[in-house]
C-alpha cells in the first residue's frame, strides 16, 4: 500500500475516532448528571423528611410539656381553689359566701388561661422574647433563682418552625440548668451582629465537664435541632464554674 494512502486512512480514522470519543463522552456526562441529580433529590427528600420529623417531635414534646404543666396547675392551684371555694360556699356566714364567689371567679380565670395554653397556636401569637420572659418570670416567682433578660429584638422575625425549635431548645436548656446546675442566677441575652443573631444563656451554677460522655443524648439532640434550622449550638462549662450556652442563627 502507498504510504501516502496509509496516512490518509489514518487521518480519516483518527477524525472518526475522535468524533466517536466525544459523542461517548457527552452521552456519559448526561447520564452521570441524571444519576447524580436523582441521588441529590433523594438526599434532599430524606433531609426534608428528617426535618419534618424533628418538627413533629418538637410539637409533640411541647404538647406533652404543656399537658404536664396543665396537670400540675389543675392539681396544685385549681384543685386547692375548688376545695377552698367548696368550704366557703358550704358556710352559712355571708362573708364566707362572698369569699367563695371570689374563689369561683379566680378559678374561672385560671381555667380560661389554662385552656389557651392547650392550643399550640400560642406559639404563633407569642414572640420569642415574650416566651423567654414568661419562662424566667415563672422561674423567679417560685424563688428558685434570680433571672434577667436583655434583648435587642433580634429574634422578632422568625418562621414558625424556627420559633418551635428555639422554644424547645431554650426550654431544655432551662430545665437542664434547674435539674443539674443549682444556679443562683440565670441570665439570658439576645443580640445580633452583621453576620448572625445569638441567644446566650448563662448560669452561675456548679458547671460540669462537657468532655465527659453522658449517658443521655441531650446535648447532641440540641445541636442537631439547631442544625435543622441552619443554626448552631455551643456550650462551654467547667466543673465548679458557670455554664454558658450560645444559640446562633444566621439571618
Amino acid at each position: 500500500m502507498n504510504p501516502a494512502d496509509n496516512q490518509i486512512y489514518i487521518i480519516i480514522f483518527s477524525t472518526l475516532f475522535l468524533g466517536g470519543l466525544m459523542s461517548t463522552f457527552i452521552v456519559a456526562m448526561v447520564f452521570i448528571h441524571r444519576q447524580r441529580q436523582a441521588q441529590s433529590r433523594q438526599k434532599m427528600d430524606q433531609m426534608r423528611a428528617e426535618f419534618e420529623k424533628t418538627i413533629r417531635n418538637i410539637e409533640n414534646e411541647i404538647h406533652q410539656e404543656t399537658l404536664t404543666q396543665v396537670g400540675r396547675e389543675l392539681h396544685d392551684n385549681i384543685g386547692q381553689l375548688l376545695s377552698l371555694a367548696k368550704l366557703s360556699l358550704n358556710s352559712s356566714k355571708p362573708e364566707k359566701q362572698t369569699e367563695g364567689r371570689e374563689y369561683l371567679n379566680q378559678i374561672i380565670k385560671e381555667v380560661r388561661a389554662l385552656s389557651k395554653t392547650l392550643n399550640l397556636d400560642w406559639v404563633e401569637s407569642v414572640s420569642l422574647d415574650d416566651f423567654i420572659r414568661q419562662q424566667l418570670e415563672k422561674l423567679q416567682s417560685t424563688g428558685f433563682c434570680e433571672t434577667a433578660l436583655k434583648s435587642d429584638g433580634a429574634f422578632l422575625k422568625l418562621s414558625k418552625d424556627q420559633k418551635l425549635v428555639l422554644i424547645r431548645v431554650i426550654q431544655e436548656c432551662l430545665n437542664n440548668a434547674i435539674k443539674h446546675a443549682q444556679p443562683g442566677r440565670i441570665d439570658i441575652r439576645i443580640a445580633k451582629n452583621n453576620e448572625a443573631r445569638r441567644i446566650e444563656i448563662r448560669d452561675d451554677g456548679v458547671g460540669f465537664d462537657p468532655s465527659q460522655a453522658s449517658q443521655g443524648s441531650g446535648m447532641s439532640n440540641l445541636t442537631k435541632r439547631m442544625e435543622t434550622i441552619g443554626g448552631k449550638f455551643n456550650l462551654t462549662s467547667k466543673l465548679g464554674k458557670a455554664t454558658h450556652i450560645t444559640l446562633e442563627l444566621p439571618f
Binding site: 496516512q7 483518527s14 477524525t15 475522535l18 457527552i26
Partner: peptide, 27 residues
C-alpha cells in the same frame, strides 16, 4: 458540546492542513 465537537473533529485536519492540500486536496 459543539465546541468540543468542533475542536476534536477538526483537530487532525487542522494540524495536517498543508499536507492534506498537497497530497489529497479532495479529502
Amino acid at each position: 458540546t459543539f465546541l468540543l465537537f468542533n475542536y476534536s473533529l477538526t483537530y487532525i485536519y487542522s494540524v495536517s492542513l498543508l499536507y492534506l492540500y498537497k497530497e489529497n486536496p479532495t479529502l
